[in-house]
């Protein structure tokens, strides 16, 4: 019933508009051309007013909503991007304002008049050249600035970078840290199975002190290299506050490095929000759970990070905690416990 009513309402609404318009049209035909100029002028006025309302509202609303935009970039890379945005903002706003004003002003100024005839003006080489060359120059500036910063963002990773291995799958992230040796254990797809979803090669000694983490903990003012991969479909590692974004592609590992500059605590002070957390989200459509792949990022001081990483590596290294006992158990052929071990491994990996 309610569905029927909804459709009925919409249909009635359309019919009402249709009837009113029919009457208006009829009146216009009856009146003939006598007040064409006047009605055309009214229309021009309305159009221009609407145009200017849109222009003013669109600019004014920028200032209203500015406070909700992303806060100050929390990384060095973000600052470069922000400066690029400022430059582009300046040029595009200027173009937007000037052209919209001209457009709607012309509509009113040159509205139809029976006393006037339009100005025959088919072309002007100098003018056309001018508005080919001027935009070309402005764009050259933007291209040069942009490419310069682009290459800075994608420059060689500094050698002292902290490495985090981020693996995406439907619909969760797995964070792996290299442990004390700062080298991640090798991965090999052919080793992948439900007990070892990442396909970590446990024969590689480097993997023995690697640990998995629930939150992404990273140190401030130190380069962080995010190594990115995906297990099933495309995902995208998006750290909005750091302006970091890179697709996770199955079969092709990607990476991106950045240097965080504001700790979580400082950001809480800046935003005056004690609840604030940096967040990691997925920015590439990956299926029905795309919208809730969340991880928390904690930016801490370098000392804190080192302490945390060392403890984790010693106490929580996946190999020593899960794989080694499993291996020992299987060599001792104590099959009775292996199923519970398997369960333990699965939970730990998750």
């Amino acid at each position: 019933m309610s569905a029927f009513l909804l459709i009925l309402t919409i249909v009635l609404l359309v019919i009402v508009v249709l009837q009113i318009s029919k009457a208006a049209e009829l009146a216009r035909v009856l009146k003939g051309d006598s007040d064409y100029e006047e009605s055309n002028g009214n229309l021009a006025l309305i159009t221009t007013v609407v145009g200017f309302v849109i222009l003013v509202a669109s600019l004014w609303s920028i200032f209203t909503y500015k406070d909700r935009f992303l806060p100050v970039p929390a990384s060095e890379q973000g600052v470069w991007i922000q400066s690029m945005i400022n430059w582009t903002m300046f040029f595009t706003c200027a173009v937007y304002i000037i052209t919209q004003i001209l457009l709607f002003w012309f509509v009113y100024k040159y509205k139809f008049s029976s006393k006037r005839r339009a100005f025959w003006y088919p072309d002007n080489g100098a003018l056309e050249l001018a508005w080919t060359v001027v935009p070309a120059i402005v764009l050259t500036v933007l291209v040069i600035l942009g490419i310069q910063k682009w290459f800075k963002v994608f420059s060689e990773t500094p050698t002292d970078a902290i490495v985090v291995d981020v693996t995406a799958q439907q619909f969760k992230w797995t964070l792996r840290y290299p442990g004390n040796d700062n080298v991640l254990g090798a991965r090999d797809f052919s080793l992948t199975n439900s007990n070892n979803e990442l396909g970590v090669n446990w024969n590689d000694k480097n993997s023995h002190d690697d640990f998995f983490a629930d939150d992404m903990v990273i140190p401030v003012n130190t380069p962080v290299l995010v190594k990115i991969s995906a297990l099933d479909v495309l995902h995208n590692v998006n750290l909005v506050h750091f302006r970091v974004k890179m697709d996770a592609v199955p079969g092709i590992p990607t990476k991106m490095w950045f240097r965080p500059t504001i700790t979580t605590d400082s950001m809480r002070l800046i935003l005056n929000n004690p609840e604030f957390e940096y967040e990691l989200n997925c920015s590439e459509l990956c299926g029905s759970g795309h919208y809730n792949m969340r991880k928390v990022i904690k930016v801490v001081s370098l000392d804190e990070y080192k302490k945390w990483a060392r403890t984790q590596s010693l106490e929580n290294a996946f190999y020593t905690k899960n794989v080694q006992p499993e291996l020992a158990a299987s060599t001792a052929q104590t099959d009775t416990t292996s199923s519970s071990k398997e369960a333990a491994i699965t939970t730990a990996t998750n």
């Binding site: 055309n40 229309l43 021009a44 159009t47 052209t99 001209l102 457009l103 012309f106 509509v107 040159y110 509205k111 139809f112 008049s113 006037r116 005839r117 339009a118 100005f119 003006y121 003018l127």
Partner: peptide, 12 residues
């Protein structure tokens, strides 16, 4: 387009 409108005799 803008110059086309400029000094035209615009029917709306």
């Amino acid at each position: 387009w803008l110059t086309t409108l400029w000094r035209g005799n615009i029917h709306l």
